[in-house]
Computed example of a mutant assay.
Amino acid sequence: MDYYSFEYPYLIFLLFPIIYCLYRCKERLKPIYFVHLHFLSAKKSFYKLEWIVKVAIFILLAIALASPIIVDRVDPLNRNGKDIVLAIDASGSMNSSGFDFESEEKTSQRLSRFEIAKLVAAEFIQKRVGDNVGVVLYGDFAFIASPITFEKNIIVEMLSYLTQGMAGQNTAIGEAIAMSVRAFKHSKAKSKIIVLLTDGEHNSGDISPKDALVLAEEENIKIYTIGMGNRGEADEALLKTIAQASGGEFFYATNAKELREIYESIDGLESSKIKSRDYLLKEYYYHLLLLVALALLLFLINREMRK
């Protein structure tokens, strides 16, 4: 949110003695007696204009010293939001097609499940205005593709570089949950959420989903599970158990439209305060005032030289 302010507002008080002095401490002129006073009318007019210009210069200089700024309060961590980790399945089955995706231009594209999952996840991330988001990719094993951060554009760009199979061809759901829990290591959010997406069954990894679920419960992490693909391909029973035990919900998407709607439903999650520091972006404008004051000063000098 933008607002106007001064970096050194107390310097504004310099205006008062300066203006008072300009008004009261007038230059004492030696009286000159002249009969035809109408010849001096132009001079009097100039002296009045000169005084106004001088006052304007001093006002501009005093305001410039106070340093007027526009402050953009960027509050990436101290906001009403939540920390979210998206755990995305990159196993061999995610290379399957037949999960049509309709872009914002209303053109249909035939992409793999993994590519569609990335596109819908990117849309979800960009809508997380008050949240910090991280990404975990998993197959035979799991790894943190992006730590939890407020920099949404960086995460979305990173998603475009992820490929199906880069974590192996199997589905280690337990590893995915455990690695997602590890991603919250430095999180100070009260609301921590994992959104786990898969189109298969747990069949790999050294950590079982049951043991991984215990880790999530210890950290008070809520897990939302999403099964995608044809009914029966994903282990619905396991995904329901994980979601219910952690206080989350289970969803199933058989097409890209349903997947989008699921992420929109998760969009309605409650928010909580994340404790950290503010970050202020300041745009300075004192130089504009100095330029105007300089222009007025040059105007006075030019008039004085032409007298």
Results as ranks from 00 to 15, higher is better:
Leu213Gly: 11
Gly165Met: 11
Ala183Ser: 07
Gln126Val: 10
Tyr20Glu: 11
Glu102Met: 08
Gly247Ile: 12
Val129Ala: 03
Tyr286Glu: 10
Pro76Asn: 14
Ile57Tyr: 12
Ile19Gly: 00
Glu249Met: 11
Ala122Trp: 08
Leu288Trp: 00
Asn132Leu: 09
Gly139Val: 05
Asp2Asn: 10
Tyr33Gln: 13
Lys43Pro: 00
Ile84Phe: 05
Lys282Cys: 03
Leu11Gly: 03
Ser146Leu: 04
Lys30Pro: 00
Lys152Ala: 13
Ile148Arg: 10
Ala245Lys: 15
Phe150Asp: 05
Leu60Arg: 15
Ile144Ala: 12
Ile70Val: 15
Gly92Ser: 10
Leu15Pro: 06
Ala64Gly: 07
Leu61Val: 15
Met158Tyr: 02
Asn153Phe: 04
Ser191Pro: 00
Ala64Leu: 13
Arg113Lys: 15
Thr254Asn: 05
Ser246Gly: 02
Ala176Gly: 10
Ile177Gly: 04
Lys190Asp: 09
Lys43Asp: 11
Glu151Met: 14
Ala253Leu: 14
Phe39Trp: 01
Phe150Pro: 09
Arg277Ala: 14
Gln109Arg: 12
Phe141Glu: 04
Ile125Asp: 02
Phe46Met: 11
Leu14Phe: 05
Asp140Phe: 02
Pro68Met: 10
Met158Phe: 00
Glu151Lys: 13
Phe13Asn: 01
Leu288His: 10
Phe13Val: 10
